[in-house]
Simulated assay, not measured.
Amino acid sequence: MADTQITPEVTWAQRSSSSDATRNYLFVGVNVPDVPKNAADLSVTPSSISFTGRTIKGVKYHVSLDLYAEIDPENSKVNHTARGVELVLRKKELKAEYWPRLLKETKKVHFLKTDFDKWVDEDEQDPTLDDDYAANFGGFGENEGLGGIDFSKLGGGPTDAKPAAANEPDESDDNQDDEMPELEGDAAKEEEKPEN
Rank of each mutant, 00 (worst) to 15 (best):
G53E: 01
H62G: 07
H62K: 06
V63Q: 03
L65M: 04
D66C: 05
Y68T: 01
I71M: 02
D72C: 04
P73F: 05
E74Y: 02
E74G: 00
K77F: 13
V78C: 04
V78Y: 00
N79V: 00
T81G: 02
A82L: 10
G84K: 09
V85S: 05
V85E: 07
L87V: 04
V88K: 01
E93Y: 03
L94Q: 10
W99G: 02
W99V: 01
L103K: 01
K104N: 04
K108N: 13
V109I: 07
H110D: 14
F111Q: 06
L112A: 01
K113S: 08
F116A: 12
D117S: 10
K118N: 15
V120D: 11
E122N: 03
E124S: 08
D126P: 02
D126A: 07
A135H: 14
A135C: 01
N136T: 15
F137Y: 14
F140K: 11
N143C: 05
N143M: 06
E144G: 15
F151A: 01
L154W: 10
L154V: 03
G155W: 07
G156K: 14
G156I: 05
D160H: 07
A161Y: 07
A165T: 08
A165E: 12
N167V: 04
P169I: 11
D173Q: 03
D186F: 14
K189D: 14
E190C: 13
E192N: 12
K193A: 12
